[in-house]
């Protein structure tokens, strides 16, 4: 909203392509915007909706028709010029909104939770469409979403914000696999957290003693300064190995199976290990996967690199 100019900047400067745009009114910023509820003008046809930004900028009649045609082609809605927004489905309306934000060739496209109003299936489908349109046009898109998987699907770079502070800006893979702090680790994807204190630093790795006194483990020192600092260990559920051979992994513990949830592609397993019964392990539903029973005891283990010692 501040980027688009609808809210006043209280401190700092926004630059777009090197130019400060703080004092520019919304209509002079040249930022295309896609809103959550599409905000298509109901009294205009699709064609008129698309020609609106062009006419507002005084683009010539002949150009207008050509640009509208191209924009609609880009969102695969060629020939829909005469329809009313109310005659379109949610996904089509969203595509028209997208075409409208792209048709005047803005320097930046802002998308404010554009898929929030769609159902899950359509949302996933649209994610790929937006991704492909984005790739083919090469325009910069700032995409606001609360849906982590949507962010991972669409983005080249993701900024995770917490209470107005950017926690980490990184590529999706780095953000997921190498989170800088506990908030990011928790926010993007599922995560097991163990609290402890660093006992001994050893180059890039460290030994951490758990606060609840249920043992010590080896972890990757990401955000800890030295021995004695408190830390949160972050461990992805899919990186936990069930029943590893003794000695094959630096971290190996006995666990009791508390709960099994069948989810089709994987089996979500809650185990009691290291003094917590909220420890999640994802067992992929692959051929020959370990079949566990609730109440049984099993060994679990993980690599040093997968267990990240983060600041608290």
């Amino acid at each position: 909203m501040m980027l688009a100019g609808f809210e006043t900047v209280t401190y700092g400067t926004i630059y777009l392509g090197g130019d400060p745009i703080n004092s520019l009114p919304p209509h002079k910023r040249g930022i295309g915007m896609v809103f959550q509820n599409y905000a298509l003008f109901p009294h205009m046809t699709v064609g008129e909706n698309l020609s609106f930004p062009l006419e507002a900028r005084g683009v010539g009649k002949a150009d207008v028709q050509e640009k509208i045609g191209r924009a609609l082609e880009a969102v695969q809605l060629g020939g829909y010029e005469r329809r009313r927004p109310s005659q379109l489905s949610g996904g089509q309306q969203q595509r028209v909104a997208l075409a409208r934000a792209l048709v005047f060739e803005p320097a930046l496209v802002l998308m404010d939770e554009p898929l929030g109003a769609l159902d899950k299936q359509l949302r996933e489908h649209m994610q790929y469409e937006i991704k492909h349109i984005h790739e083919s046009l090469g325009v910069t898109v700032v995409y606001v979403t609360h849906d982590q998987s949507e962010a991972l699907t669409l983005s080249d770079r993701i900024a995770v914000l917490n209470q107005g502070v950017i926690q980490q800006i990184d590529a999706p893979t780095d953000l997921y696999e190498k989170p800088n702090n506990a908030f990011v680790a928790q926010f993007i994807g599922e995560n097991n957290r163990l609290r402890g204190r660093v006992r001994h630093m050893n180059g890039t790795s460290c030994r951490v003693e758990l606060d609840n006194g249920h043992g010590e483990m080896q972890a990757l020192a990401v955000n800890v300064s030295g021995s004695g600092t408190p830390t949160t260990l972050s461990l992805r559920p899919e990186r936990v190995v069930i029943d590893p051979a003794p000695g094959s992994l630096p971290n190996r513990f006995e666990a009791r199976v508390e709960e099994l949830t069948y989810l089709g592609d994987h089996i979500r397993t809650r185990v009691n290990v290291c003094g917590t019964d909220q420890f999640i392990v994802k067992i992929p539903n692959a051929q020959g996967h370990a079949s566990l029973k609730e109440g049984s005891t099993v060994a679990v283990g993980w690599e040093i690199d997968d267990c990240r010692a983060l600041g608290t």
Partner: peptide, 23 residues
């Protein structure tokens, strides 16, 4: 009439008066 229409119009490059009369 959702206020978002006016915002949308302005983000699409329409000044206040133009957005008011057209949207």
């Amino acid at each position: 009439i959702p206020p978002i229409y006016m915002r949308a119009a302005m983000s699409l490059g329409a000044g206040r008066h133009y957005a008011f009369w057209r949207v």
